[in-house]
């Protein structure tokens, strides 16, 4: 942003000096579904060009936290978020922030592949089209091709771009969804258990893809699979009962965690 406040500039410089660049900062984030509280004062920072894995037993609030990052919780009736989440220097819950613009900057891939019932081309082109990212047909073609390349799907579908996106296999559909998210050129991509509906081969492909995407995007991934977290992420955050238990380098997390509960969960003693 060109209108950064002085404090923000200082903060940004500070981050640079510590050689850690935080893309998103969550401070005291609490989420309520009506009367029920789902998250308790979570402080979690997401590093730039890093894959951050959110792990924890079912119902621990990891998906809820993920959805606060692009305000998908807004669509749930009775959901309330307190605390502060920033994307670069913008408070994303500031009334001045447009949620549509936010979601163009923070894309999302869902648990179940959910391509639109349109052609493969249209699936990828939809985001750029509504945001006016391509002026000419040639530009759009280029965006579609690049996005499908990045999602590792181009070679499989380049001859059938006009066929239905729902006709692809599950793994291909999920990579199509990733291509669709990538096509908008977001800064952050959120993934909510992206491989839980896929077979091991498709999972391996998506994981490989996440590795490659890290060069250009900041990624936050929710996963139930400990191995997956260990394979794809550099940072891991462990949630339990709506609290952030521990956040650490993935290597450390899986070898020598600071918190006993993390140890127990990773060892499979609960969850």
């Amino acid at each position: 942003m060109n209108m950064m406040s002085e404090a923000a500039v200082e903060k940004a410089l500070d981050k640079k000096m510590n050689d850690i660049s935080y893309k998103m900062i969550g401070k005291d984030v609490s989420v309520y579904y009506g009367e029920k509280r789902a998250l308790y004062d979570v402080n979690l920072n997401v590093r730039e060009n890093t894959v951050t894995a959110l792990i924890g037993p079912s119902g621990c609030g990891k998906s809820t936290f993920l959805r606060t990052l692009n305000r998908m919780n807004d669509t749930i009736d009775g959901c309330r978020v307190t605390g502060r989440i920033t994307l670069d220097t913008d408070d994303i819950y500031d009334p001045a922030i447009d949620v549509v613009e936010l979601r163009a900057r923070v894309g999302m891939v869902f648990q179940k592949p959910n391509p639109f019932p349109k052609s493969i081309y249209e699936n990828v082109a939809y985001g750029p089209r509504i945001h006016g990212l391509a002026k000419a047909k040639a530009d759009m073609d280029a965006i579609v091709e690049q996005s499908l390349q990045k999602a590792g799907l181009w070679n499989e579908v380049k001859d059938r771009l006009q066929e239905g996106g729902t006709g692809l296999s599950g793994g291909q559909q999920q990579r199509l969804c990733i291509a669709r998210a990538v096509a908008v050129s977001p800064e952050v991509i959120l993934m909510d258990e992206p491989c839980s509906a896929l077979d091991p081969i498709a999972t391996a492909k998506v994981e490989e893809l996440i590795h490659e995407l890290r060069a250009n995007f900041t990624i936050v991934i929710v996963t139930h699979s400990m191995q997956q977290a260990a394979r794809v992420s550099q940072r891991t955050a462990m949630f339990h009962l709506g609290n952030l238990v521990e956040e650490n380098d993935t290597d450390k997390m899986f070898t020598n965690p600071d918190d006993q509960r993390t140890q127990d969960y990773i060892m499979g003693r609960f969850g």
Binding site: V100, G107, F110, K112, N114, I130, H131, R180, A181, V184
Partner: peptide, 12 residues
């Protein structure tokens, strides 16, 4: 899921 997909892409 279709609504989520569109909203997640930044559709109004």
């Amino acid at each position: 899921s279709i609504r989520s997909a569109a909203l997640g892409l930044g559709a109004s």
